[in-house]
Every structure is written in C-alpha cells, then in structure tokens.
Design a protein around this nucleic acid. Sequence first.
RNA 1: GGGCGAUUAGCUCAGUGGUAGAGCACUGCCUUCACACGGCAGGGGUCGUUGGUUCAAUCCCAACAUCGCCUACCA
Length: 935
Amino acid sequence: MFYCEMTQELSKTYEPKDVENKWYSFWLEKGFFHADENSDKKPYTIVIPPPNITGSLHMGHALNNTLQDILIRWKRMSGYNALWMPGTDHAGIATQNVVEKQLSNEGTNRHAIGRDKFIERVWKWREESGGTIIRQLKRLGSSCDWDRERFTMDEGLSEAVKEVFVRLYNEGLIYRDNYIINWCPRCHTALSDLEVDSVDTTGALYHIRYPIIGSKDAVVVATTRPETMLGDTAVAINPDDKRYKNVKGKKLFLPIANKEIPVIEDAVVDMEFGTGAVKVTPAHDPADFEMGKRHNLSQIVVIDDSGNMTAEAGGKYKGMKREECRKEIVKQLEEEGYLIKKEAHQHAVGHCYRCRAIVEPLVKLQWFVKIKPLAEEAIKAVEDEKIRFIPKGWENTYFEWMRNIKDWCISRQIWWGHQIPAWYCCDCFGDKITIFSHDKPSGTSYTALRKSGKTHEEILGSVDRCIIDKSVEPIVSKGKPKCPKCNGSNMIQEPDVLDTWFSSALWPFSTLGWPQKTKELSAFYPTDTLVTGFDIIFFWVARMIMMGLKFMNDAPFKDVYIHALVRDAEGQKMSKSKGNVIDPLIMIDKYGADALRFTLSAMASPGRDIKLSEERIEGYRNFCNKLWNASRFAMMNIDKDFKAKTIDSQNLFDKWILSRLNRLTKDTTEALKGYRFDEAANGVYQFIWHEFCDWYLELIKPVLNKKEDADKVAMTQTVLIHVLESSLRLLHPFMPFITEEIWQRLPRFGEAASISSIMTAPFPVVGDKLIDNRIEDEARLLQDAISSVRNIRGEMNIKPSVEIDVLFKTADENRADFFKEYTDYIKFLTRAKGVKIGTDIEKPKMSATGILKDMEVYIPIEGLVDFAEELSRLQKEAEKIKKEIEFVNKKLGNQDFVDKAPEAVVIKEKEMYKEFAEKLSKIESGIRKIEALKT
RNA sequence: GGGCGAUUAGCUCAGUGGUAGAGCACUGCCUUCACACGGCAGGGGUCGUUGGUUCAAUCCCAACAUCGCCUACCA
C-alpha cells in the first residue's frame, strides 16, 4: 500500500487551501451532488432560499447554506436521494437599481435607451456579475445539484408565473383597483406593505387651528405632516368625544388652502391622541383613505410621484419638494397665527427597503392578490401540523401575520421582472390609454397618436410608460390574445411587472418544472425542509405555503427551520456602513471553509442570534489541526501491510472508545433529527478532542509501542482506524473538506473499500450493543486514578521529567486485581517509574495523598516537595469536602425532604453523604500524619 | 400600543425541579518521539431583582428592571 509513504509527506499543520478546491472539483466531476429523479431511494429535498443576483456572500448566507449542506450531506450519507435545489433570484428593484446606476455613470438612463435595450443590459449584467454568489457558495462547500440550477427569470419559471397569474385572475383572486399604496418616490414604483421598513424617528407634532365657520372658536388638529393639509377634505372627531359635541356638523375653515371642510365623526379617531381632532387627507394617508371612503370624501392629490407638490397644492407650493413644502407651510401658519404649538414626537416613518427613501402613501391603480382565501388554507396547514416550524415559537409570528393579512400589492412600476400577462385592446379603448414616450413626457392618448399617423408598432416601440384607465378591461392571458370584443390584435401589454416575491413564492415547484408534469416534480415535491432566517417568514415562507397549497394541493415543505441572525461580537447587526462585517470569504481564506462552517453550526443554538467573533473561528481551525494531527498519528502507527481484523477486541480501552463512539453516533443522529446543529457539532468536537485524542490515543501508545504481540497491535490498529474513520463520517456534513482529505488517505476495509468518497460513504449507524455502561464505568475508574496522580503532580509542581512512584491502596482485592492489569497504562500516563497496587499498601511516611472512591493514592515525595505544600493542599481539599457535607447534611436533616422526596433521590443523597464523610476522614488522617511528622 | 425573546464564569453561549457546563480568555508547569493551531493541572458563578408554588427553584408561576427584536392607520 502507498499511504504510509504519503504519511511522511503530511505536514504538521492542516492547510485547507490546497485541499478545498481539489475535493470540490472531484465531487463535481463525479456528479455526487446530482440527485437522480429516477432513483428508487427515498427522496429528501431542500430548495435553497435563492440569493439575489446582486448579492455577495455574507455571514447570513454562510450560516444558512452551511446548515442546509449539513442536512443534505447527512441525508445523502444516510441513503436518501438527496436533492438540494439551487438558484438565484432576479431581485427586481435591487437589480434594476444596480443597472440604472451603471447607466447613470455612463451619462445616460433607462428612459433614454428604452425598455427593450434596458432589459438587454440587465441580462448582460447578469451574465457578467450575477454568478458571484454562486461561486461563493461553492467555496463554502455547498453540495447543491448545480445541474439543476434555476433563475427566477428563466423561461420555465416565467411560464409558471404566467400560469399562476392567469389562474388566480380567473378565480377572482387577482384584481386591479385604485387603492392607497406605498410609493417609493425614488424608485418610482409601488411597494407591498412588507417592503416598507418602519424607522422610529423623532419628528414633530404640529398643532394647527382650523377656525369654525360662524364662530370665534376653532378646532385644533394635531399632525406630523402639515404639508398634506393642502389636500385635507375634512376633520374627524370621535363621535363620543364630549369636547367636540358642539362642532358636530359644523364647517371649518382650512387655512392656506382657503376653503371650507366638514367635521366628520368616525370611531377610529383616538380621543387620547393629540387634540382628539384629526385632519383627513384621503389621498395621502392610509387611515384617511379608508375614512374618506366611509364618508364619501374627495381625494385631492397634492404630492406627485416624485414626492413634489402638485398644481393642486396651490400656486405657491407647486413643484416644491415635500420636505421643503413642510417648512414653508409651517412658516406661513406661524405668520398667519394658525400654528398653536410644535412638540417633539416619536413615530415610525416608512422607508423603501431597497433605497431607504421615505415612502409616500399614494392612491394608484395597482394589481392585488386577494389574499384571505389563500391565507386561510395556509394557516390551517400549520395548525394541522402539516408544516412544522422549528423552533415552534415562530408559528405564532406566522399566525399573527397571516390572521391580519391584507391584500398583496403585486404590481411594480419597474422594467426588470415578470411583465404582468394582461393585455388591453387599443382599438376598443385607445382614448383611455395614455402613452408617455421619452421625448414626449407629457403624454398623449393612443387614439390621438394613431390619428397623427403612427402605426401601432411605432407607438408600442416608443412607450416609456403608459397609464391605462381603470375602465379599460384587461384581458389576462399567457400569450398575446385577440380582443374578444372587436377581434382585433392591436394590444398593449400591461407595462407593470410583478413583485419579485411573486415568483419566489412558486420556487419549490416552479424549479421542479411546474406547470409541466415532470418526473422531478413527482419525485421531489413536496420538499422536506426549508432553512431560512426569520426575516423572510412573511416575504417568502408564508407566500410559498399559500402558493404551494393552492397550486400543488400540498404544502411545499414539512419542516421550516428558522435560524438566527448573525451579528458581530458586540451584538450589532453586521453592515457595511458600520464597518463591522466579518467577510466569510476572507475567513475561508484565512482559516478554511471547514472552520467557518463548524463555527457557525456550533453556535447555531435555536432562538438566539449568533454573535460571531474571529477568535471563535480560529478556535475551530485549531480543532481541524487537532484532527489532522490525530490522523497523522494514526497513520504513522500503521504497518505498511496493515490488514484490518474483525473487531472483537477484549481490551478495555478499545471497548471503551467503541462504546463512546456509538454513544456519540446515537447522540449526533438524534441532534440532527432535532435540528440541534450546535449539540451535534459540540458532541463530535468533544469526542474527537477530549476522548479520542486526550485519552484513547494516549492509552494505545503503550500497546502500539510493544511490538511483541502482533495480534494485539493489529487489533488496536484496526480499532484506531475504525474509530477515526467513523468519526470522520460523523463529522463530514460539518467539515466536508478535511474529512475527505483524511479519509482518502486512510486504509479502507470492508464495505468502505469500494467507496470512492466519504460523501457517498454511509453515515454511521449506532450499534446499541456496543454501548456498554459497565465498560465506561471501568475506564472511568482508571481515568480518575490517573487524573488524581496528575493532579498531585500539578498541584505540587512535580515536573514531568521527574519520575515518581505511585501506590494505590484499594478497598478490596477485586479492585486491586483490576488495577494491576493496567499497570503499564498507569505508568505511562502518569510518568511513573513504579506502580504498586494492593489492599495492604502502607502509606509511606512522606507522601502526597489522593482520595478516590474506595481507593487512596500515595506518592512518596521525600526530597521532592516539602510538607507544608502537601499540608496546605490537603487542607484545601478538606475545606471543599466539608462544604459539600454541610450541604448534603442540611438536606438529610430536613424531615420533609426525607418523607416527600422520591426514594431514589434520598438514597442518592445518603450515599453521597457516606462517600464524603469517608473521604474527609481519610484526608484528616493524612493531615494528622503530616503534622505528626513535623513535630 | 400589542407581541416575542434575552438576562448563567472576564467574554460568547449550552443546560437541568434534586449540590451548575462548554469554548475562548486567565494562572502554574511542560520544547514528553501526532499536534505549542499543543499537553497536564488549576482558579473563577449568591444562574437580573422581588415575591409565590414545592420537601427542594437557576429551571415552574407572578411582578419589576435592563437590553434586543418583530408588529401597528398615535394622525
């Protein structure tokens, strides 16, 4: 065999850089990531939360994808047909903004180049830059089925979008209406409620006098947005508000605008807030919009699409920015004596989640999904536990939102995205279709343009934006239809595109080929687990559930694992502007992907954010190195012609490590089943470092060095390799690279001989018979004895180079015989020159004493240390024991405890008392002996 | 305003109705033939505060405090 020669080449430290690319390419070449839709194996599917093509890998992605990869690799090794479906999201607004910025740098803009050219530019950008995050996911080791990679703007996925839109429309679940929506005056598009970030802001509450017509009195309204008063059409009071009893039915004078508005009564008005009187601006406030509808108020639009004041706002203010207008209005109110006061006021201000501009509520004709019927099913699916949230607490968040859900505004006034498959007949409704072209931004009706001699195609070619009146009937169809009225084909397609989340809502089935009836779909849908952050439960998870239930008649996944947010070491959200970002790619370069992955999984305890620090990653890099060196040791100690034996070792420590390994296998599997990535990772870490390395490797050194018993050596080597190899397989989902690197160098026997990669090797299965409590207890006795000797050495500063004698006095012969068997081990691990064991051991006059259960340890210290040191050590020990005795005594002295506590607990306490008491008396006798010697 | 979560060793976090655990950091000793990205040993906590339930509370309950997050038509 050749691996022993290779061993010589193993460097003393693990170098991830050399290893990671090599194995990732190997896995790809072998097609190990690919899931076969024709496989008979049980499927296990995860769809990736598609990252934005504009994005680059941050720690959140790193965590999210590490966890998915752990699940997928674990399931794949466990014999499942594991599919991890990857892809990216076209991120409408974000991507459009990126490309628009590019154009702006080139001194042009999308309106100048036109819609078609612009879309071409976006695709071009996508070809060049959209793959960044995918490459980065590969660096992390993600074992996605890249052959199946999808993009939300793919042809197939676009087909799914159209299909869904048409079907929802035909069922009346999509409609087009005028409604007050969130408008971003910078992106120039509508946003859904979710796409608005509320930011707590200290603003001002202005108290303004609105004089009562025919009276000297006035009603004082309180508002944070005085500039909207130009669009006021009423003042509302609560019908129960006694303060305003006398103004009911009166008219008020609206300052500046110089007109009369009515007082209306509406129960929604909060008497406690402000003055209890609210100015009502139906065109610019969601609450006022609703009120306006209830009271038949007109909508006066005073703010335009760019956030500037309109002509309706009045001559002086026309064209002014809304912020500037506010200042001017306040100034004028002050001058004219209408401003009563201005007070500081905390309130939430909506910002565009893509560009941070302050959102303006505007009334616009938009497309909506009637969401209640879909939400009801989605709520039921979680209530009926068809879908499980982990941790369970998130179900409440989900229910809360779903039960108060409002219709979803799905139309966006941008160009990059799925254009809504709705059409309008230009021949029937040409006069109600207003075309805005780049060179004629004021807008002309379609009919007028035709009359001016332009052809239909010429008009469509010049459209920059258009307004289609609400009265124009849309024809919703996947392809361009003919007009059912006039049979004409001069159609104009709805210019708006769909919310990006509309297409990502279909991701679990659209990526598998829906609406085609594909093999993939029947093989892999419904998927098993969705792994994501809580920040997109509403955006994405809830909507996937609704769409999955609606179109597949089945929930899109069974488990939703919600992981934490990754923050910096101070608990701050990582952001570029704060400069506290820990870049996962830099960490991978520095410490290796395995170290980063392991850090994230070990810290992924449920329900708590991860405060990441670089030291932590360094620590797990050290773990990689530890594993590396343990493996080097193993390989150095294997014969060139090593042949594995059948494992039936009679050696205590072999049996011990096998028992521990199997316990670990059981615990790790349980932890993974429960999505306890932290417990799984920590368990493997603990085992490899503190049991396998600290104890087992040390314990077998005396065996391996004693070459005479070849059978024994071969058995130990077999166990050694077996345990190492199994540990590697347990660890592989967490640390794919280093485990493969080591695994490939190990001699393989049995079934493993024919397997070409650890990632296709079976995940260890627990052998319950090998878990042996008695063996573990026996090993523990020896370990405790060895630790006790080492403790004395350490405490008394006996240097490792000084060889000592160790004496064990046991309570009975059995124990003595048992210990005698392991003299060599004890010698080696305590660096002793002689070990004596027996029931009749006399304590040497000048010796240090260690007290164990049913056993005492003596180390002659004559000439090594002075008595004072040993005396103070024993006294310290005695103090400790006394405290414990006091504690137990208090309990046992309590009659209620003895009467009411379970018997087993009482017995345990009594035994403890006995043990402590014995220990104390031994220590005290030791103290007396030393004191006697001193005098 | 409503909801949720957190508060445990210097730091970051596990955890359990029956005398508190890990990693890092810290202290001492050690260049012992896998590993100084290491070994051995050690120090360190009235488990946020106050009540209650219980034989027993860090854990269950209630209030409070501090911090964080989500959500909302307080204009």
